[in-house]
């Protein structure tokens, strides 16, 4: 079997395994949602009491997984299987990327198909790395779902056979610039999904506080809003300098090949918009009164700009970057 055929097969296998991981995660969530309403409702109701009981104003550490009370239940075991499958999917994804590189004899991120299979890898790796330190398995179904969707698009719409690059793309700045963009993209993806879960949870909490009872059984069993907001902020804070570096590396590369480091080409413009949105997010998050869900909208706007730059600009807006090959 040739390297490129092997690579294609590995990517297909990765999709299959990721789908299984997604199903396992969904099953875990379903199990928890079904059995857990009263339990979690109790926990939320208890929390203020604990604070009132004279402990220092600090909330109890939110590091503890909310699902710890349910650890060992069949649902949790299915979830653990989901994580193992996600690891396996990630390894297959990685192998697919490496063999693609061997097939093309260059860094395997030179066209949209390749960006897609690499970004799913960085998103998956970010999620699994987070999972070792934070109780964020609820993210699993969504992250893996997004990965499956992206890989599905990659093998159907975006697919291009492995091959050489057009001469302008043949530069080590490409390797550096795109690698940074893809890494930050993967982390931003995790940040955006966590932000959405945070907003869901926060709305749920607000409603519960107002009405004294909880609807929304899914939201009730998510990690606390505090945890989710901390994880989301951490992801954004981690990814933002890498994205900044990606933009700078892109500018240096543009100077190298076109003689100007910034020309407001659509791709550059949307990279700028993405950057400015995330900068606005960081500011909003440091502004009293804006922290929380209002700041979150800026992060989501940044992510939307990132995704549009990746898909929309390549496909709909003509520009110097369009040769990237769909």
């Amino acid at each position: 079997m040739t390297w490129d055929l092997l690579s294609d097969n590995l990517i297909y296998s990765a999709i299959a395994v990721y789908v299984l991981a997604m199903l396992a995660y969904a099953a875990e969530t379903a199990a928890r949602v079904n059995r857990g309403v009263e339990v979690t409702a109790e926990v939320t109701a208890e929390a203020p009491v604990a604070v009132g009981a004279g402990a220092p104003a600090a909330a109890p550490p939110s590091r503890v997984a909310p699902s710890s009370s349910t650890a060992g239940t069949p649902g949790a075991r299915v979830g653990a299987v989901g994580s193992s499958l996600a690891v396996l999917g990630l390894l297959l994804n990685l192998a697919g990327v490496v063999t693609r590189g061997l097939a093309a004899e260059r860094a395997p991120w030179g066209n949209m198909y390749e960006f897609a299979i690499v970004i799913t890898m960085t998103a998956g790796a970010t999620y699994l790395a987070l999972l070792r330190r934070q109780p964020v398995r609820d993210l699993g179904a969504w992250i893996v779902g997004a990965i499956v969707l992206t890989l599905g698009l990659a093998v159907t719409v975006l697919y291009t056979p492995a091959g050489d690059l057009v001469p302008v793309l043949d530069s080590y700045w490409l390797v550096v610039h795109v690698a940074a963009a893809i890494i930050s993209g993967g982390v931003f993806t995790v940040g955006a999904l966590t932000t959405i879960l945070f907003m869901v949870r926060q709305r749920h909490d607000a409603r519960a506080a107002r009405l004294g009872r909880t609807r929304g059984r899914y939201a009730a069993q998510l990690p606390t809003a505090d945890t989710l907001s901390r994880v989301a902020r951490g992801a954004h804070v981690f990814a933002f300098p890498i994205w900044t570096f990606a933009v700078i590396a892109g500018a240096i590369w543009a100077e190298n090949s076109w003689g100007r480091y910034w020309g407001w080409d659509p791709k550059e413009t949307w990279a700028f918009i993405t950057w400015v949105c995330y900068a606005a997010y960081l500011h909003a998050d440091a502004t009293t009164g804006w922290r929380g869900s209002r700041a979150s909208w800026f992060a989501l706007a940044g992510y939307a700009a990132f995704v549009f730059n990746f898909f929309g600009v390549n496909m709909w807006i003509p520009g110097l970057h369009s040769y990237a090959g769909v």
């Binding site: 918009i273 400015v276 949105c277 900068a279 606005a280 500011h283 909003a284 502004t287 804006w290 800026f298 706007a301 700009a305």
Partner: peptide, 10 residues
């Protein structure tokens, strides 16, 4: 102000 102006810029 920074948030508003940054949003405007975007």
């Amino acid at each position: 102000t920074a948030v508003i102006l940054l949003s405007l810029l975007a």
